[in-house]
Design a protein around this nucleic acid. Structure first.
Lengths: 341, 341
DNA sequence: TTGAAAGCGGTACCAA
DNA sequence: TTGGTACCGCTTTCAA
């Protein structure tokens, strides 16, 4: 069923039917009602390609997921973020188009995306430090919002980010206040911007107490359970082991917990742990993972917000970019005790 | 840059340029070469909407993710599967269009998707028992492939699935052979088809040894770490606790490990554990999660295969549906020991 | 081997 | 308030 058939069926012109369907004011209420009903019963919905072609609006957003051989895993939060964004898009009549962009051939991919004109805007995921994609997209001139930020990029762009720096500053300070002086940082890959910011905050906060950052107390890597386990084990084997850990992911923190356990120590008494992770419901479902003190933000909601920002950008480009910081909630749990004497 | 401009630039007709670009034989090699080069230097790529409109082919695949309030979490394997599929699509010039479909308004969503004609086919995720979406899509008459299967659906359809039944049969048998008689099943939600099949296999295999299924030894729920912990704890508190666990997800198995540990027991000696999960690299990265004996399949590769099947279906619809079973690899590790006397 | 022109399914301007 | 028609960017038939 297309517009032609529908209008023929109604003995009206395509023009009128189109207008009735799209809420133009110059259509009489009687006609509109007739048209609406016919459309419903005949199960008509307009061909989105044709509509795009005619209007220049695609009603589609590209989500750009970087994939590389380096870390094959797709960030698990991606699903929740996408779901949140999808929710918002759906309300506005937009679709999500996923592009898994290989690290190595980004430029051509973006240019093609733009010139093929399939989407009205982009959401950029997993920004790295000085991420070149940001300059690229700016130059290409399509609206986009970054989920996260990229240090060392001076040109303004729109982003939505969790306040990683503030969260790690608070967490570090909290441990310092409890008397901890040797705090192990188990971080993600530091070419990822969020991880970089976390370390910066950690180091800076230590500095305020004149505690120099000890390289043996800082590890970074792919955030897996075994990685957390290994990293914690290695640090605990040091001549001067840490009395607390700051862990960049829940799943790694599970590994840390195991390492502490295996060493015959007790979390919250002998060793303290603070985790920061975004919302991973398969870990947090139920409040009985007491080992975590987590600052959390709902990734789903971040998806909502980022989508709103982007739609805004598309509708009426503001003078300056939109930015939005989400403050992580800091929940202190029983895994975080004072430093043992 | 569009076709008109390009052809004007070349002093050729749109027809010729189009033909040259699309590899039609009637174009002279000289012209083709000229056209190709101009297209490259001028950074031309055809508008996909216009192309779709003209050809009726969309070069886009819809991935349908069910979202419900019941379990808000998006299945974490979704990202990896999508990446795998995206890889295959990219090679064939297809795009992924994500539809997060609310459980409650499926019918209308699918009908709209079809009549709006944005995609050439679907991949259906997370099938439930007797999943109504399968009938719906069949009726609508669009090519689709189900990732998983749906029990109690008799009409044929195309699917790709891990052999969950076989995996749990083997795992159960393995534990029986080791002398275990009380085996706890910690399963996912059993309205999900994969979980249903796993339980069936478990129960059936026990039956072959005349062991009746004990309801207190079977739990099902959302597969989180705390759930695994709680479920294992409850079972171990039974008058006759299990000597082994069969766990439907790695993340839950981590909870099970914790429960065993907390009970002062040792895995692989006092209690055995076998896990089945699809490929979650943030858990398996490195072989040092010795507590797991996992049957594994690469979700990424499943995505590749499912995409191939669907593209095949779209290109030349076969007489009967395509089906493909992936056998899970059974890796027995040190967490699986004989039943204690 | 090349080109003109008619669609694909809509929207939007101009006229009635 | 309604309808005729050009057009969005590309493919494809038909004619040259």
């Amino acid at each position: 069923m297309n517009l032609k058939q529908l209008s023929h069926h109604l003995n009206l012109s395509q023009t009128t039917v189109s207008r009735a369907l799209n809420g133009y004011p110059e259509v009489s209420e009687a006609t509109r009602k007739r048209v609406m009903e016919a459309a419903k019963t005949l199960n008509y919905s307009p061909n989105s390609r044709a509509k795009s072609l005619a209007t220049g609006r695609n009603h589609a957003i590209g989500h750009v997921i970087p994939v590389s051989d380096q870390h094959e895993m797709v960030n698990p939060i991606f699903g929740d973020f996408t779901a949140g964004a999808g929710e918002t898009y759906a309300k506005a009549g937009y679709e999500i188009m996923i592009s898994m962009v290989d690290d190595t051939r980004q430029e051509e991919t973006y240019r093609a995306l733009r010139s093929r004109g399939t989407v009205d805007g982009f959401i950029l995921h997993g920004p790295r430090m000085a991420d070149p994609r940001i300059g690229l997209l700016t130059q290409i001139g399509m609206p986009f919002v970054v989920h996260g930020r990229a240090s060392h990029i001076e040109t303004p762009y729109s982003w939505l980010d969790t306040n990683n720096g503030r969260a790690f500053e608070r967490a570090t300070q909290f441990l310092l206040d409890l008397g901890h002086r040797r705090i192990g940082l188990i971080n993600g890959h530091e070419f990822m911007d969020f991880a970089f910011r976390r370390r910066e905050a950690y180091v800076t906060t230590l500095k305020t107490q004149d505690i120099p950052a000890d390289p043996t107390l800082m590890q970074s890597g792919e955030m897996t359970e075994p990685y957390g386990y290994r990293a914690a084990q290695e640090m605990m084997a040091l001549p001067q082991p840490p009395t607390a850990f700051l862990v960049s992911s829940m799943i790694s923190a599970i590994g840390v917990r195991r390492a502490i356990h295996d060493a015959g120590l007790q979390m919250g008494r002998d060793v303290s742990v603070i985790t920061h992770d975004d919302d991973l419901s398969y870990l947090k479902n139920g409040d009985d993972v007491p080992i975590f003190t987590a600052t959390r933000s709902s990734v789903h909601r971040a998806g909502n917000l980022a989508a709103e920002m982007l739609l805004q950008l598309i509708k009426s480009p503001p003078q300056s970019p939109l930015t939005r910081m989400i403050e992580a909630e800091l929940i202190i749990g029983q895994s975080t005790g004072p430093a043992p004497k």
